[in-house]
Design a protein around this nucleic acid. Sequence first.
DNA 1: AAAAAAT
Length: 717
Amino acid sequence: MPKNKKPRGGRAAANFEPRYGAKKTSFHERHRTAPARDGARDERSTRADAGDRRSTAGYDRRPGSRSPGHRGYRPEEAESGAPKRRWTSQERAGRDEARGIRNRAESGRREAPHHRDDRGAQRPTGPGTYRDDRPRRDDRGAGRFDDRRNDRGAQQRQGFRDNDHRDGGRPRFDDRRTERPRFDRDDRPRRDDRGAGRFDDRRDDRGGQQRQGFRDDRPRRDDRDDRGRVNDRGTSRPERSYDADRARRAFDRDRTQRSFDGERERPRASTGGAYRTERPRREERPTRSDWNAKPKDAFTPGDDVVHERLEAQAVQAVEVEGVTFADLGLGSNITETLNNLGAQTPFPIQAASIPAVLEGRDVLARGRTGSGKTIAFGAPLVERVLQSQAGKRREFGRAPRAIILAPTRELALQIDRTIQPIARSVGLFTTQIYGGVPQGRQVGALKKGVDIVIGTPGRVEDLMNQGKLDLSDCRIAVLDEADHMCELGFVEPVQRILRRTADGSQKLLFSATLDREVAALVDEFLVEPAVFEVAGEDQESSTIEHRVLVIEHRDKADILTSLVDREGKTLVFARTRAYAEMLAEQFDDAGIPAVSLHGDLNQAKRTRNLEKLTSGRVNVLVATDVAARGIHVDDIDLVVQADAPDEYKTYLHRSGRTGRAGRSGRVVTLITRQRQRRMTELLDRAEIEAPFEQARLDDDVIEEIAGRLPSAAELTA
DNA sequence: AAAAAAT
């Protein structure tokens, strides 16, 4: 029902006093209806309006209907009250469901709709008890993150050594695009899986699996590819003329700008050559005469091999020994701050990307979150902003010079906690721009003037559109978790934001699983990017132990409780918010303090719950994939996947929450028999070796994983 | 399915 059809005002209001879904009434509305009521009742009713209208509506006209302790107790309701107090179908459903749950025993007595009841109806069914009206867990204790910076720095750096991602050694980028003149750009058709693993001489076979997996995971892309190929041959060009035009315009502008952008001093042929492939690629592709008609210099040689050169650009840890941050070109204030953050000497990804960023180049880098990646882009970003402002006064209300985008609010917060001290050490200001909190403070900061914005796409775009955030002077844009930011739903806001940054702005794309998914952005926004990754970040050198438990679905709830009933910090991943919430309550009911983290919680609670795990006030956090990427909590020694992920990348990111800082970590994934095949394929794609074990509730495996029994290895040792 | 704006 459209809102404006709601009965309102005058007689209508008098007859329908408990209005459907009308939770709030304005002062004016209430007083417009006043004449239709009798005085005394009106006064009460108005007071009631200020509270929960629905819970009192319709009851107040009969004396004695609100006797204490019997809220909603109304024996006469059936005769006189019912016609006026209609329930929405949702309420009715909730009531019926609730009655069912209570075996109808109490249905006569408790008729008032409890709001929680209808939630119960929607909750996922699962083993284990689940009571809706039970008082919620205690959420007292506001969490603050602030003072952990120093620790974090150190841990981040150490974490560098562990293996966030499996695909570390493999170039995933498709170079196909490079054969196409940039003017003829359609982002989509370029992506093609073929050859994804081809350059991986170590595992040809793997490559094959990977490619397949790539398709399986993303049918959407396949569609595009298929369509794209058709388009490439010019048969259905008009189909996407709109997109193509838009992209082309943006591109052309960008391109022109950059070609003559002396200030950026982009290395062209010379450095580009360093990233050039020696062997011709794409032999499986037919020649496109229409493309060849384009001028050769429409695209640079460096472009066509960025992706392929990934592996060759892998930075070896040895190569950076003895190098200091100062050597890389960072100023003394920044260097000192990095030291205070626990970063004495650069790690490979930093050693590689810092000079490139300082040169003004666009950069693509793979490096796990919390591995020094934040510093890898953050420190040179601060340095560059500083240089670009050298000699200038920092004006009140100046527009930001750099923006960093992250996929979740928690990650944006975390990035700011690392970058803010670096920025402040040279007198620059950062601010967080993300949703779920009032705009006031953020806008206030922008008004005063901020140099570096760190945020999530939604609020950034919101403020942009409100005219409160001006990115036109933004010379550097960073995408953290760039591949994720290129997924459906994210990529469009991100593109719109990037388009509003200064012409020719420098782009930095970072992720632990950087793959061809970023091609759309790379094609539009990056110019001769330098591509880096860290050698040796593979699963063989990982400190993470992976296991898969094949279980009966009916045992799942109890097995989960059993797994989580342990000493160390445990992070449980669930696929949906509702299930995450349910599991947290289930654990709590079982006497294991647990909190949840997902998008149904308000931001205060999200922040607080995460902090509870960080601080150790609870040991169990049940989260959706909101926590899969970037979230850095020390000492998580067990990751439980209550639901198996659908994508290998998700598996890698989730499991990367443990095994940090060289510590050991365990990842256990619960699946049912039917899922074994899919799981095998996923693990293949991720190049993870994990034994599958049948497990029942009281099996030793579970005790062992939870750490209540020594493992076989520990026994023999 | 989740995330990312608020209403």
